[in-house]
Design a protein around this nucleic acid. Structure first.
Lengths: 223, 223
DNA sequence: AATCTAATTATGTCTATACATAATATTAAT
DNA sequence: ATTAATATTATGTATAGACATAATTAGATT
């Protein structure tokens, strides 16, 4: 059926036969056709509605699945040596400014961390992180001297919802300093917010050297 | 079962009961448990291996599903008026330089387009696009004076594989000119390559004004 | 003609059962 | 002790059948 879509036999917008007929055609059970069509629908190639039937998606803008890797993996995969420095660690109580970014109520205890990730000794990523201690109380027992908060969180705390913002920006003075940027060099910024069952978990701002950082997403689609 | 994972009853790395036992627990058929677990696995919350069993994912780095919207939608959604200008249109034959970006053999006919997308009359996105006429022959019949190639492709040509690259860059002279960038202003660049059944379809470079463009991804996860 | 009601229909989900497959665990042979 | 052959096991997939649900269509009523 994928071949019939890619081969334009079933063109975008076309209504395709119903499950029962397809099961006949292919000599299999309706449940099997249903499973196959569900996967194509999940992949965004078709759109299905009860009674109305199934049609080939007109807007094939299926979205890209971005795998944001751990910095360490990313650096080691490129054959370089990973380095990590904890720049700052403090516990604070959220004020109105912070609550905007972390989405917690005033007076919630928050762990604030600043770290630098290095590739072969060169600055690679500057991490500014806030962790909601209300949602992740045991984070206060970790010193984060050896392991970065990202790595720890990923191993210890699941999440159910996430928001990512990607942007190109002129660096702040701090970023220029820490990442040792050349003049006119932009930063590539990833901001991530996660929630565990609607409870804010963490907010992080990851800054990268513009000229050398590329975020890649390869979608092979369809199992 | 999702609740047991988010509630930490089943912690990251834990082996969870097998399908048969879970079916007993929940008083349903194994097929139903299998379906549910398959969805959790698709969402990246658990990892499954035959015989070895199912365990809660240790690396919850589940990836973000990026919906890259049509420029027009994006602009109109923000309440601004969409504008479109075709800057250039030509048919050319691929040389070695182009084949690197579009991944086609030498001497393949290629349609090259340059367009500018505007929000309330202000430059918003500069589009440089190459279309493989071997894969999309009827593209040569479209003049693209009124509708942008993105919109046309999305409606007419499906794809099975895609690659996206996001980066922050110092603008080229052309980008600085067309997007009317202030000095020191970086560009946010989206590069997209798509294939239809392993045949290259299109390569596009979309440049945006760094200070005003933010790419957002919200993942509610789990149906 | 407009509105409400009932019939129809395609997808959505679940069940019980069967067999396939990959990976581990066990046993036998070297 | 190491290796090869075999058994076991949890997941993976397919099946026929049943019923649920959403949306449309047709029919009845105003």
């Amino acid at each position: 059926m994928l071949a019939r879509i890619t081969g334009q036999e079933w063109a975008p917008g076309d209504l395709i036969p119903n499950e029962e007929d397809l099961a006949q055609d292919y000599g299999c059970a309706r449940a099997t056709v249903n499973r196959a069509l569900r996967e194509l629908a999940d992949a965004g190639l078709i759109e299905r509605r009860r009674k109305a039937g199934t049609r080939v998606a007109r807007r094939a803008t299926r979205g890209a699945l971005l795998q944001i890797p751990l910095v360490r993996m990313e650096i080691e995969a490129s054959g370089r040596r990973y380095g990590y420095v904890l720049l700052h660690r403090s516990t604070l109580v959220s004020d109105s400014g912070l609550s905007g970014r972390l989405d917690v109520a005033r007076d919630t205890p928050v762990l604030f961390l600043r770290c630098l990730h290095l590739a072969d000794g060169e600055p690679y990523q500057l991490e500014n992180r806030w962790i909601n201690l209300d949602a992740v109380p045991n984070a206060s027992d970790v010193n984060f001297e050896e392991t970065g908060p990202n790595e720890w969180l990923v191993a210890e705390v699941p999440y159910t919802r996430a928001e990512h913002i990607f942007s190109a920006a002129t660096p702040t003075g701090d970023e220029r300093d820490r990442l040792r940027l050349r003049p006119d060099e932009p930063v590539f910024v990833i901001e991530r917010r996660t929630w565990l069952a609607d409870k804010p978990v963490t907010y992080v701002r990851l800054s990268h050297i513009g000229s050398s950082y590329r975020m890649v997403s390869r979608d092979d689609e369809i199992a």
